[in-house]
Simulated scan of single mutants.
Amino acid sequence: MTVLDVGAGTGGFAAAFREWFGVRVLAVEPSAAMRALIPVAPVLIRNTFPGRGERDLRVRFFPETAESVSDYPSVERVEEAFGAAGFRRVALRSLPQESAPTLASYADGLRRERDTKLRALTDEAYARGLARIRAAAAANPGESAVSWMDLLVLR
């Protein structure tokens, strides 16, 4: 479980929540003076950034979803926004995220209503995408359903 501590001050309660309850804590503090007192911690952003989503399963099988990512903030825009608060890029890596052990099980478990990108598709586009997944699963029965998503690390 992750707890969001908004107005975290010096981070004292964030550390206590982690210790007392064994949870991850995301501390957010708008005051620069208070943030200066918190031990330095990285900002981790896992996302699909524009121009970097070609290995996302949704883009692979539902190519119409690629356009929705084009409206997301670019890596450069995110760095600029966080740079105003003193953060700089430490790393940008693509990491695998397994959605299902096989493409067939991915298709079986896919729920259009749970995914904003898929909900935006027409019925026909969604049906074509499912057919693409099932064809790929038939051609490669052991292939895992893996998307590669970016992890941007700022410190």
Rank of each mutant, 00 (worst) to 15 (best):
residue 133 I to A: 01
residue 86 G to C: 07
residue 115 D to F: 11
residue 78 V to E: 11
residue 118 L to I: 04
residue 86 G to Q: 07
residue 131 A to Y: 06
residue 102 T to Y: 10
residue 95 L to Y: 12
residue 80 E to A: 05
residue 99 S to H: 15
residue 100 A to D: 13
residue 106 Y to G: 00
residue 107 A to T: 02
residue 131 A to H: 07
residue 123 D to M: 07
residue 82 F to N: 06
residue 123 D to A: 11
residue 100 A to R: 12
residue 107 A to Y: 08
residue 107 A to K: 05
residue 119 R to H: 09
residue 118 L to V: 05
residue 96 P to F: 15
residue 93 R to E: 13
residue 93 R to D: 13
residue 75 V to T: 05
residue 109 G to L: 07
residue 117 K to Q: 15
residue 111 R to P: 03
residue 79 E to I: 13
residue 130 L to D: 03
residue 121 L to V: 01
residue 91 A to Q: 10
residue 71 D to N: 12
residue 119 R to M: 11
residue 80 E to F: 02
residue 81 A to M: 09
residue 101 P to H: 11
residue 134 R to G: 02
residue 114 R to M: 12
residue 85 A to R: 14
residue 119 R to P: 09
residue 83 G to Y: 13
residue 130 L to F: 07
residue 92 L to D: 05
residue 98 E to D: 12
residue 110 L to I: 00
residue 96 P to M: 15
residue 76 E to I: 01
residue 105 S to M: 07
residue 128 R to G: 04
residue 84 A to K: 14
residue 119 R to W: 11
residue 80 E to R: 02
residue 134 R to L: 07
residue 89 R to Y: 11
residue 103 L to G: 03
residue 106 Y to S: 00
residue 134 R to I: 01
residue 84 A to Q: 14
residue 89 R to L: 10
residue 127 A to V: 09
residue 111 R to D: 11
residue 77 R to L: 13
residue 89 R to H: 10
residue 70 S to K: 12
residue 97 Q to P: 05
residue 96 P to Q: 14
residue 78 V to Q: 08
residue 99 S to C: 12
residue 122 T to W: 09
residue 123 D to I: 04
residue 113 E to I: 00
residue 133 I to L: 04
residue 110 L to T: 02
residue 108 D to C: 02
residue 113 E to T: 00
residue 88 R to K: 14
residue 119 R to E: 07
residue 127 A to I: 10
residue 84 A to Y: 13
residue 94 S to E: 15
